[in-house]
Every structure is written in C-alpha cells, then in structure tokens.
C-alpha cells in the first residue's frame, strides 16, 4: 500500500474529529449547554492526568509519580504557572526516585 494515501486518510478523519463541532456550535447556545461545555475542559484534563499519574501500562502502580504530582498540584494552585508546576513536580519526582 502507498503509505502517503494512508496518511492522507488518517489526516482527513483526524481533521474531521477536530473540526466537526466547531461550526455546529456557532449559534447562541442554551445556558445549560454552555454551563456543560464550560465543565468539559477540567473533566478532560483530569481524564488525561489521572491515568498518567496512577497507571503504568494500564495497571494501578504506586510510586514516586504520585507524590510528585501532588507537589505539582500544590505549585499549580499557588502559582498558576505551568512552568513552575513542571519544575517543582520533576524535582520532587527525581528526589523521590533517588530516595526510594
């Protein structure tokens, strides 16, 4: 098979998933729908964070990544800075990995 044809197909369906809802939701939306959509980002971020911190190869794994994420969360809450969250979290992770 021609790899570029497969890439083009993959690119097309990926674009469609990203684009599909943008024009559909261009009109004024009812209040509950807006409220719902406002809660989606925090839910999606949680859904990206929690498995990445708690699971390794899709199995619950306790390790230094959990306290490191907690340090990151405190930093995020105090500074609202992505950069400081990463710096504090990684330092905690490396320190705990070295100690454990």
């Amino acid at each position: 098979m021609n790899p570029w044809a497969v890439f083009a197909g993959m690119a097309l369906v990926t674009f469609l998933t990203r684009f599909a809802m943008m024009p559909m939701l261009s009109r004024e939306l009812p209040r509950p729908v807006l409220r719902y959509l406002q809660l989606v980002p925090v839910a999606i971020l949680s859904a990206l964070i929690a498995p990445a911190v708690l699971l390794v190869d899709r199995h619950l794994t306790l390790g230094p990544q959990i306290p490191a994420a907690a340090v990151g969360a405190v930093m995020a809450w105090r500074t609202r800075s992505v950069l400081w969250t990463i710096v504090a979290g990684m330092l905690a992770y490396w320190l705990l990995s070295a100690l454990l």
Partner: peptide, 13 residues
C-alpha cells in the same frame, strides 16, 4: 513522561 501530567496539572488550575 511525568512532564505531560504535570503540564496538564498546571493548566487545570
């Protein structure tokens, strides 16, 4: 690989 969840934690705040 910890950078991903940490960055998302920073954004989630």
């Amino acid at each position: 690989e910890m950078v991903f969840p940490l960055a998302f934690i920073g954004l989630a705040a």
